[in-house]
Amino acid sequence: MPGPPPLVSVVVSARGNTQSVRNLLDALAVQALPAAQMEAVVVDNDLPGPVRPIADAVCDGTWPFAVRVLYEPTPGLSAGRNRGICAARGRYVAITDPDITPDPGWLHALVAAIEEEQVFAVGGRTDVTYPGGQITALTTALRECHGAVKWPAGREMAVWPYWVTGCNLLFDRQTALDIGLFRTDLGRRGRWMGDCEDLEFIDRARQAGHQTLIEPAARASHPVYRPETTLRYFVRQGAGHGVCVARMHLSVTVEPAAIQAGCRDVHAAAVGLAAGWTFLDRSRAVEGARDLVRIGAYHLERGRLRLLGRRPIALAQYAPKEPLPWT
């Protein structure tokens, strides 16, 4: 007979990163939240085949909480997460990635915030690290491709200029099922570097009347290695980001700050590329090239969607920041 359901289900979708899954489970084993109040749902999203290294690695370990391994044959981060959320038994679902290392107080801080403030979701602070040495040459815009750079000092609503990331997010499971889970045409899928699945999910919830909070005390670290700091990486990331922002128009009202694809933005990107190339400022030139690719991909995808008869939702307008409900 299964025991009582846990308070929190930690859902992680893994593809080809077996050792990272074990490291994540080891980090969850030292969480301040009692082990009896949590479970881990690991979704194997590897290619089909008789060998399941993720399942084998998890089954070989011993952790103080329940660990379940599921298989999701549809490739894609969103598909894997959705599979885990549907199978989760906890009242709350915390989603993260295999290569994330949460602080011991991570889950406790997320749960405390969501229960004290009575919001739909809480996102924690994710600190990007660069193993082997800090890469200081990257511009702020390029660093934001790896994760948020600016964080509030205390609890704040997840509205611009702050945003949450899918590797550090806790939400009410039943509400998520009611509003719909992650869109599978967004997010990373194999070698395709899509994203915005977490941004669209939170925006859709907010536009349905459900608030999301940022709790900077819920900290985790995310390593970024040198292959993710190359021109090729940023160009691919820009293309995927542009396509996904264009697709977001089909389900949510997209904030103008998330688009930045007008004539002035094209001009600024071109100037940045030319100036960076002229003055041998590599990071500025890479940022300009990435932005030009991103803007081009955004408009091409919007045009394709129009030809298919997919009607977008109107753009949002800038509005004053909403006062916090607890102030």
Rank of each mutant, 00 (worst) to 15 (best):
Q31T: 08
Q211R: 13
A148R: 07
A208T: 13
R91D: 06
I135N: 09
A88L: 09
P223Q: 14
F120P: 03
F182P: 01
Y225V: 15
L142V: 05
L213T: 04
V43E: 02
E301H: 06
Q31L: 04
P325S: 06
T96A: 08
D44Q: 07
V245M: 03
N45M: 07
Q260E: 15
R232F: 06
D185E: 12
R310S: 09
Q174D: 10
I202Q: 03
N17I: 08
V51A: 15
Q207R: 11
V51N: 10
L70H: 10
V10P: 00
T136W: 10
G154F: 14
D127S: 09
E116L: 15
G288Q: 05
G190V: 12
E215L: 13
G272Q: 05
Q19M: 09
W63G: 11
R81Y: 10
L213M: 12
C86G: 07
A153G: 15
D203P: 00
H299A: 06
G309Q: 06
R236Q: 13
Y71D: 10
P64L: 10
I313G: 12
T101F: 03
S9W: 08
L24A: 05
E200A: 05
A218V: 07
L170M: 07
D265W: 07
V164K: 04
L138E: 00
P5W: 06
A57G: 09
R52D: 07
E115K: 12
T139C: 02
L292Y: 03
D185M: 06
R68P: 04
P102N: 02
D99Y: 09
V93Y: 02
T101Q: 08
C86V: 15
L7Q: 08
A268M: 06
I135Y: 05
W160C: 14
G3D: 10
Q118N: 14
F201I: 04
D97K: 07
D127Y: 03
H146I: 03
W163V: 00
M38S: 06
L213I: 08
F182S: 01
V67T: 13
P4A: 15
R188P: 00
M38Q: 04
I135S: 05
L77N: 00
S13E: 04
L292M: 13
G194H: 04
A257M: 13
R304Y: 07
A113F: 03
R310D: 08
T139M: 01
L33W: 10
D265S: 06
R89Q: 12
G90K: 02
V111Y: 01
R173M: 09
Q31M: 05
A270Q: 02
A57F: 02
V254D: 14
W160Y: 15
Q37C: 09
L110R: 10
D99K: 06
C145E: 10
G288D: 01
R206H: 11
I179W: 03
D44I: 03
Y225E: 15
L213Y: 02
G133K: 07
A258W: 08
P312G: 08
Y233E: 09
Q211C: 05
T74D: 15
H241F: 14
I100F: 00
P53Y: 03
N23P: 01
S251F: 05
Q207K: 11
A220M: 11
R311M: 10
T136F: 14
P34T: 05
A94C: 15
A319E: 13
I100Q: 14
R236S: 11
P6R: 11
R206V: 09
V243S: 00
G288H: 04
V43D: 00
T139H: 00
A269I: 01
P325D: 04
Q174H: 10
R83H: 09
R302E: 12
T212G: 13
